[in-house]
Design a protein around this nucleic acid. Structure first.
Lengths: 132, 132
DNA sequence: GTGGCTGCAAAATGTTTGCACGGAT
DNA sequence: ATCCGTGCAAACATTTTGCAGCCAC
């Protein structure tokens, strides 16, 4: 199964690039529709999946909201506001030794780890403080 | 809103306790039905939510599968097999300093972090090795 | 008798799949 | 001619919600 570079594929990549931060599939779809009316949601989902497989995008899975997509594919962590849902990249150094460490203590073969910090962003923090 | 201790609430807690590991809401529901035919799915979901709120259970959210519930409520990390979905607790010490550290570097008020390791469990590892 | 709790069915959400068509190789 | 990609709608999985009735306080 050889894959083609279709206009839609390029367009989805472009939509992600134009959207700042970590857009969801729906946000990417809405932007893609602007660029190419008629594109289908399923196509966007399929393209995103392929782009992640190719390593051109990274999927940030959230347990209680739609997944987000990230142009930055190198390992890094995320910070999320539990009130407004904002998701931002963290500059904290990647804890490369953790995987080997856990592998040594369990019979698992560790491939990666996912680390997400949760709390309140400055805006929500202030808003929360005000009506307390 | 004062809350009552109902038979269903106790039963859901019992079902979680009887099931080993980290059952999903559906697994808990199925066990609950055995103990009390007629209990509804929605009731199980509502009870789980309340029990988590009370701090008697911990919810382990997974981005690509149903959430799991954990009787162990103290902070700890998880290890997940990406092939069979097995989820187990990790004994790795909790990195308590991380939150303060990230808080110092971002304007966020950090409340917690979620750390999940992913890889292959011993069984799946062997199975994967065999047909390679 | 007020207000939370239950069970049911329906809704909501996010994502995947079946299918027929169309285009590229 | 084959096979991949597309658009649409329907299916799917998980969780939440609206609502009527019930039970405990």
């Amino acid at each position: 199964m050889k894959q083609r570079s279709t206009p839609q594929r390029r367009l989805v990549m472009q939509a992600v690039s134009e959207l700042e931060g970590h857009p969801s599939a729906e946000e990417i779809y809405l932007r893609a529709v602007q660029l190419c009316p008629g594109i289908g949601r399923a196509t966007v989902y399929r393209c995103l999946k392929l782009l992640v497989l190719e390593g051109r995008l990274r999927r940030v899975g959230l347990s209680d909201a739609a997944d987000r997509y990230d142009r930055k594919t190198q390992p890094h962590y995320h910070l999320r506001c539990e009130r407004c849902g904002a998701l931002i990249d963290l500059a904290v150094p990647y804890l490369a030794g953790l995987d080997a460490n856990v592998g040594r203590h369990t019979q698992f073969e560790i491939h990666r780890h996912i680390l997400i910090f949760e709390g309140l962003c400055p805006d929500c923090r202030q808003r929360a403080g005000n009506h307390r």
